[in-house]
Simulated assay, not measured.
Amino acid sequence: MAKKPPQEPFGCTIAIAVLLGVAYALPYLFTFTVYAFPLFVAFLLVFSNWRGPLTPEFIDESQVGAALHDLETARRSLLEDIADLRARGTREGVRYLKLEDRFEMRSSRGQELNEALANARSALADVATRIEMAQHPQHRRDHAWRLSMRSWRRGKAFRLAFIAALFSFAAFAALLKGYVYEGADLLVWNALPNLIGRHVEVATVFGWVLGLATFLAIRRSNRLAAERENGASERHADVLDDIGPQSGDGAYQSDKEIDDPYLILNVSPQATIPEIKAAYRLAIVKCHPDTVADRSKSIREAAQAEAQRVNAAYDAIRNEQGFN
């Protein structure tokens, strides 16, 4: 039986066609690069921020109110999303278990809805944490200040990218002009040959590359800084009411008062044993591992520390009053 001649792989044909298309499009791409470079630089300049960063002392009440309003809007939106997920599952015939507050897991659709619910609830918990921080007397300016810092960092990224793009373009254009660049013409159509020489064409490529590289590098640095700030703000967010009880004049109470087991459980020394037990259950459920299982690592660590604090307070009261 005669063997069939080997056939050329279809993938190689596609790869060759793509390479030819790219090679054909390169002159037009360079043309776009040259003529769009002024627009690129102007775009960076418009969004640049040339002011210095704000300090928390310069955050006024209007900024605090605007930040809190945005958080409340986000919270309402997430609540609507959760309600919409429940209604959508009901319309699709997926049974909702009210006692367990989730959909049945027997169908793949139920698993998808439960995953979406978990994500929405996790986002809602994060927003609730930020609202609690924004409403706390000592930290109410912090959230608005972090927002202003993020805005300032975005403006800084545009500013440094603008400087990098413009400086690299000017430097390479001068360098290539000084060496009398005689390379190939990158433009398909040059409307101003006396103004847009070959050295200018090549310099715009360097301006694009260094400008974009600078912008992306600073954006990544800004993202890491925002994550560090979020982690720092979350460490005590779940336990602010218990850790930082305040007196009538708004000042923090002394360390001795904060270590008072009755204040930790938020009960009176004259409270009955059932009232103390109920207060303990209410306090420990807020920082139980199951309650914060889907939260960030910093929140889980803060909850663990608060659980130890609540348990120690409850043990001290039990030993003092002699009940189990």
Rank of each mutant, 00 (worst) to 15 (best):
A174P: 02
L78C: 12
A116W: 00
P274N: 07
F162S: 01
T55E: 14
E182S: 12
F167Y: 07
Q308P: 00
V188D: 03
G89S: 06
V22N: 01
D101Q: 15
Q308C: 07
G155D: 11
A118M: 13
D142M: 06
K286Y: 02
R75Y: 14
D255Y: 04
D81A: 09
L45P: 00
R141Q: 05
A67W: 00
Q304K: 06
V202M: 04
V200L: 08
F40E: 03
E57L: 11
I264Y: 01
V180E: 15
M149E: 12
H69Y: 04
L240E: 08
K286V: 09
A225V: 08
V41T: 12
D294I: 05
D81T: 14
S296C: 02
I317F: 02
A66H: 11
Y28D: 14
L39S: 15
D315K: 11
V41R: 04
Y181F: 15
R154D: 04
V310R: 00
R109S: 09
L29P: 01
K286I: 09
R88F: 02
I59D: 00
E234H: 04
P38D: 12
V34I: 02
L19R: 11
L216S: 10
I273P: 01
I82A: 08
A232I: 05
E72A: 11
N114S: 10
R220C: 08
R75V: 08
I131G: 03
Q7C: 03
A213L: 15
C12I: 15
F30W: 13
E229M: 12
R106I: 10
A226H: 05
R198I: 03
V46P: 01
L224A: 14
H288W: 11
Y314R: 02
A161N: 03
A42L: 15
I299L: 11
A217N: 07
R153T: 08
E257F: 12
Q63N: 06
D101K: 11
A313G: 02
N114H: 09
N190K: 05
A226N: 04
L160V: 06
A303C: 12
R150M: 10
W145Y: 10
A157M: 05
S247D: 14
E100H: 09
E227I: 06
G231D: 15
Q135A: 07
K297A: 13
G89Q: 03
P53W: 05
R75T: 04
E61T: 12
A232Y: 08
P269M: 12
